[in-house]
Amino acid sequence: MSTQDSGRIVTMLQVRLHALNDLHLTLKHIHWNVVGPHFIAVHEMIDPQVDQVRSMTDDLAERIATLGGEPDGTPGALVKARTWNDYSIGRAEAIEHLGALDLVYTALIKDHREAMRATEESDPVTQDMLIEQLRGLELFQWFVRAHLESSGGRLSTRGATTESGAAGQAADQARNQP
């Protein structure tokens, strides 16, 4: 691999590292702040996701180092580099957190897929790692969406563009179910 390709991939992976570090902190935040009748189900569903996302960050950091980069996992670097807003939901019912988390996963998966496509020619080893991470992230989103979907397949957060909007839509649907 050329030095130019390796540098480009290191830069891209650093952004993915920040995104996954942010996700694992967001998941712990949800784990600590979820309440309501589905508390235990969501509380216990989140911790394995945290553990697997942390493992993904380790894989990314090690790949950055393997390619000659210096992985930066400090909170300050994450906040300085991120292009997304901080998770906006505090103490809330399980369904509200799941509605917001669905949007978090959607954005993260979209960006991970772009990184996967960008490594197809220049670094199939990194692409393989990203594909495996996508498999896990998409599985986690499926777990979340199982709480948000009607039996007819309608997603309660459909069309939501903000975490608070998705949280509200999910809560409204839950309240209006027969």
Rank of each mutant, 00 (worst) to 15 (best):
M1N: 12
S2K: 06
S6W: 04
S6T: 07
S6H: 08
G7P: 00
L13Y: 02
Q14H: 05
A19F: 01
A19M: 10
L20G: 02
N21T: 07
D22Q: 10
L25M: 06
T26H: 04
T26I: 08
T26W: 00
L27R: 04
K28R: 14
K28M: 06
H29F: 05
I30M: 09
W32I: 04
V34R: 01
V35D: 15
V35G: 06
V35E: 15
V35Q: 15
G36Y: 04
H38E: 13
F39C: 05
D47E: 14
S55A: 13
M56N: 10
L67G: 11
G69P: 14
E70P: 00
P71G: 14
D72Q: 06
G76P: 10
V79C: 00
A81S: 14
Y87P: 06
Y87E: 12
E96H: 09
L98W: 04
L98M: 15
L98Q: 12
G99F: 04
L101G: 12
D102K: 05
L103V: 12
V104P: 03
V104F: 03
Y105P: 02
T106L: 10
A107G: 12
A107K: 07
L108M: 12
I109P: 10
K110E: 15
A115P: 02
T119S: 15
E120H: 10
E121L: 07
D123C: 13
V125Y: 13
T126D: 14
Q127I: 02
L134N: 13
L134D: 07
G136P: 09
E138R: 13
L139D: 13
Q141V: 01
H147I: 02
S150V: 00
G153D: 15
R154Y: 09
R154G: 09
S156A: 15
E163W: 06
A166Q: 06
A166R: 04
A167D: 10
G168I: 02
G168F: 01
Q169G: 01
A170I: 07
A170S: 11
D172R: 11
Q173W: 07
A174Q: 11
